[in-house]
Design a protein around this nucleic acid. Structure first.
Length: 422
RNA sequence: GUGAGUAUAGUUCAACGGUUAGAGCACUGGACUGUGGCUCCAGGGGUUGGGGGUUCGAAUCCCCUUACUCACCCCA
């Protein structure tokens, strides 16, 4: 039998790292609630068609990264590579547009993309996703960006940069596309990737890293000069709103979202500490996606946070739940007694660790110390005879006898202060 | 899919082609028979990723393979 291991690009999350995950999840719930967002659960599997139609057939995600299989009913099923498509499907399917707009949701869960793993990039990765559907106002763009900013602040993250761009709308993006294609086709030989990009996704040529291409793009057209007046007004309003609450941002005309459904606002929140995958969160507007799925015309904006990337930026989080009591039974009769006692304590929501009756007292105490317990309750032959348990405070080694069934006295002992005990 | 690097104990790492592959941490036990942390001592642990080759001799050199890591592409 070969040694079992996880699949490539998939990993376990163990303590103590899981405490950081929990802290992020809890903090995000607090922040999102304060912005009026509600949690929602949407499926991990969907009809393949949902992603093909929303994300776009020519994107890498759909073209080569989807986990797609045929189920026993001969349906084509895909493990979601991102959350927005499912959210929009849910919005349309449940007629959520009938509720007051905008409807604001967040969700939390794994996404799947068949990619070559590297730092900050996995095949199964977790996202916190946020979507606001039913408003075209730049105010909602600003709210959503502010919400991400607030969360990162609450997690004590500094040195994050908000990068902002507008990629125009269906009406004006074509102008810019033409301008880019026109600009580069007059230039010399481009790298192999860019020769593909010029046909498929010309905007991507702007952040090519090949030296030859970098030189040639000097003086290339800038998107903000090509977007229509409506898009420009929207973009300017968003910037004013962010400025009004002192949120710093950096205009980055090279931000291009990799999914077809985006328009207007595109943004990324980046760090210098993640290697090549520097985006901790990214998102933008998708004003046409709901109507593309035969829903009513519904403007929307959202973003996703890369959970693993965020975890690696947030410092270690301590386990909050180290035991209050460690019960140390000596022998099997004592073990039975300790088991009963443990249940009484746990019913009062007191974190209690139960030791093995076969262990020596010394090994009990060592273990209690390693578990960072506060008190050890020793139950041996003497204690069983007298029905008095020996309760020891580990911080200063003070100990006293307490009636073996006297839960209240045990709890009272935890409240006594070291050094002033009677 | 492309390129580079790495693979030795549970873990982090040593070991010029030359005894029985070592050390820190972790784990278990003892010093201390029913009293933890600190200290000291001892112990368990390894097919040197796998396969083949060169050599008197390979963890070390060569080839193949697998896995991991980083980067490209792309993306959270």
């Amino acid at each position: 039998m070969t040694k079992l291991s996880t699949l490539k690009g998939v990993c376990d999350v163990l303590p103590p790292e899981i405490y950081t995950w929990n802290r992020i999840e809890e903090t995000s719930k607090e922040v999102f609630s304060s912005f009026g967002f509600n949690e929602i659960k949407i499926p991990v599997i969907e009809h393949s068609e949902l992603f093909i139609r929303s994300i776009g057939e020519t994107t890498d995600i759909v073209g080569k990264e989807m986990y797609t299989f045929t189920d026993k009913g001969d349906r084509s099923i895909t493990l979601r590579p991102e959350g927005t498509a499912g959210m929009v499907r849910c919005y349309v399917e449940n007629n959520l547009h009938l509720l007051p707009s905008p409807q604001k949701f967040y969700y939390y869960g794994p996404m799947f993309r068949y990619e070559r793993p590297q730092k900050g990039r996995l095949r199964q990765f977790y996202q916190i996703g946020v979507e606001a559907l039913g408003s075209a106002s730049p105010l909602v763009d600003a709210e959503v960006i502010t919400m991400a900013h607030t969360l990162f602040q609450r997690l004590d993250l500094t040195n994050l940069t908000i990068e902002l761009n507008s990629i125009g709308c269906n009406k004006c993006r074509g102008n810019y596309r033409d301008a880019i294609v026109g600009f580069f086709s007059k230039k010399g030989v481009l790298c192999n990737d860019c020769q593909v990009r010029i046909a498929k996704n010309p905007l991507r040529m702007l952040d090519c890293k090949v030296e030859r291409c970098v030189e040639q793009r000097a003086g290339a057209p800038v998107i903000l000069d090509y977007i229509c007046d409506d898009c420009k007004t929207h973009h300017e309003s968003l910037k004013e709103l962010l400025t009004a609450i002192n949120i710093d941002y950096k205009e980055n005309p090279y931000i291009v979202r990799g999914l077809d459904y985006y328009n207007r606002t595109a943004f990324e929140i980046t760090t210098e500490h993640l290697g090549a995958q520097k985006a901790v969160a990214a998102g933008g507007r998708y004003d046409n996606l709901v109507s593309d799925f035969n829903g009513p015309a519904t403007a929307a904006v959202g973003f996703a946070i890369g959970m693993e990337r965020l975890v690696s930026l947030v410092g270690e989080t301590k386990n909050q739940s180290s035991p209050v009591f460690y019960l140390a039974p000596l022998g099997s009769a004592a073990e039975n007694k300790a088991f009963v006692l443990s249940q009484s304590l746990r019913q009062k929501a007191i974190v209690t660790e139960l030791g093995d009756g076969g262990q020596t007292l010394k090994s009990h105490l060592k273990k209690a110390d390693k578990l960072n317990a506060s008190f050890v309750v020793i139950i041996g032959e003497n204690e069983l005879k007298t029905s008095r348990a020996l309760c020891k405070r580990l911080s200063d080694a003070f100990q006293k006898e307490i009636g073996i069934d006297d839960i209240d006295a045990l709890i009272a002992f935890t409240a006594e202060k070291p050094g002033v005990s009677a």
